[in-house]
Amino acid sequence: MAAEAKQQILARIREANERAVRGKETPVPRDYVHSGGLDAASREELFIERLREYDASVTVCASAGLASTIGVLLQDRGWKHVIMAAGFPAAALPFGFEFRQEAEVENSDLDACDAVITGCEVAIAVTGSIVLRHGVGLGQGTRRFTLLPDRHLCVVRAEQLVETVPEAFALLEPFTNDPLTTISGPSATADIEMTRIRGVHGPRFLEVVLVR
């Protein structure tokens, strides 16, 4: 019966197309903007502006200062129970804090921790988005890793930042076997009277550290 359903649907589609396809097939016009025209500094500025519009926090630092910047952030926010994504470079983490490893935690730990730390695969300035590629040991976590906690700290390196959506998809194309998540600000809803409320089910706080 299952095979029969498939054959019948396909037959109906073929019959419909034989009857109703008109005109010659023309190629899809792809003359939309592919790559942006901003220089690196303006691109970073735009990314920061767009993230802040989503109520995400952004801190900028130099590569050498990444660990200390994360340290200051954790101290300021008072985050003690922090978990790092598997494969996230230990060198980027400050001394004097204890970080648990992704591999050793359960859902309940993620639910209860103060924050998780990940990197990302690519980030998009125009939309203020970060894209996580959930491959093994990439330092970007599994999908649940950045979902159950209330706070997500994401490190974006300037060279990972592109301006437009098509630029990002060009970079992601080789990795379509890995699950991908695009994140644009903290989770939100406007289902009640169109009032934007932050943090329905995913993290309520998105903290981005942009490394120049």
Binding site: R50, Y54, I124, V126, T127, G128, S129, H134, V136, T142, R143, R144, T176, N177, D178, P179, L180, T181, T182, I183, S184, G185, P186, S187, A188, A190, G202
Partner: peptide, 21 residues
């Protein structure tokens, strides 16, 4: 749909993945 430049989350995945999902 919502007048946002991008909605908070897009998930793209293929089949099943050992240890994730």
């Amino acid at each position: 749909a919502t007048g946002e430049r991008m909605n908070p989350y897009n998930s793209i995945w293929t089949g099943v993945r050992e240890g994730d999902g």
